[in-house]
């Protein structure tokens, strides 16, 4: 089976976000990156699929050449090769433009199934996977928590609001992965050493054709400090007063 996992590098969760000078971008200085949480699950599912059905896993990313570090991590966990569509302005792309670039590459690679994270943990748009499927004209199941693939079809359970839906679909398909789908493995030293010898191809991403543009980026307003009104039962009247007259929630 020809398997592709899409991966995005995102700022690490320890990041203390600062807005850059232009007021539209994150200040990139000193930012460390990591594989987006749900993309780790996508890569794991791709590798598990390979282990079950045979074939090859390609991890595809759109980003700067530096994304080789995150790709290498995916290769260490069992993927076979990495592809970077290089674009130094990768973070300026809208979801549509990103999906378009990935679509062209996936057609070239000829995948049977494409795994994406359900959402990237930086932008939180959850759009690229479904857009990609639409552009490819393939089936798409999002937020998948359980997956069973056969040679040319599959069934998937997805988390819907308040329940679990089960879908049947034909391959090729795009699956976006929710966190309960699997538990990503640790690479292990063997994996890290093996990853050094695996290929990473780089080719320039097609020019961006953004349909949406970022006008401004603002941090959420700082939360005011908490206040301790007292201790034990003696503090209750002051608390009720504050909830009623200040917070106006009672």
């Amino acid at each position: 089976m020809n398997i592709v996992a899409c991966m995005k590098r995102v700022p690490t969760t320890e990041l203390v976000a600062k807005v850059g000078a232009d007021g539209k971008h994150l200040d990139a200085s000193g930012v460390q990156y990591m594989v987006s949480f749900y993309d780790e699950i996508a890569v794991e599912e791709a590798v598990k699929t390979k282990e079950k059905h045979g074939g090859e896993v390609t991890v595809l990313t759109l980003g700067p050449s530096d994304a080789a570090k995150e790709l290498r991590e995916c290769l260490a966990k069992g993927a076979d090769k990495g592809v970077i569509l290089t674009d130094d302005s990768w973070s300026d792309r809208d979801a549509h433009s990103t999906a378009e670039a990935l679509k062209a590459k996936i057609e070239e690679l000829g995948a049977d199934v494409v795994f994406c994270g359900r959402v990237a943990t930086d932008r939180d748009s959850a759009s690229v996977g479904p857009m990609l499927a639409t552009m490819l004209g393939w089936a798409c199941v999002t937020d998948v928590v359980e997956l069973d693939l056969e040679a040319d079809k599959g069934t998937a359970k997805r988390e819907a609001d308040g329940g679990i839906e089960t879908y049947a679909f034909a391959l090729p398909a795009v699956i976006t992965c929710q966190k309960d789908l699997n538990e990503p493995r640790y690479a292990g030293l063997k994996g890290i050493m093996a990853a050094k010898k695996k290929p990473i191809d780089e080719s320039p991403a097609p020019a961006a054709s953004n349909q949406a543009e970022v006008l401004a980026l603002e941090l959420p307003p700082a939360r005011p400090d908490g206040r301790i009104l007292g201790e034990g039962a003696a503090a209750v009247p002051a608390l009720i007063d504050a909830l009623r007259n200040e917070a106006k929630v009672l």
């Binding site: 570090k69 991590e73 260490a76 640790y186 890290i192 050493m193 990853a195």
Partner: peptide, 17 residues
């Protein structure tokens, strides 16, 4: 650079685990 890349990957893995 190669050794550095390996050791960074090892350290990341060990810390996470």
């Amino acid at each position: 650079d190669e050794t550095r890349e390996t050791s960074d990957a090892v350290v990341d893995m060990v810390r996470e685990w």
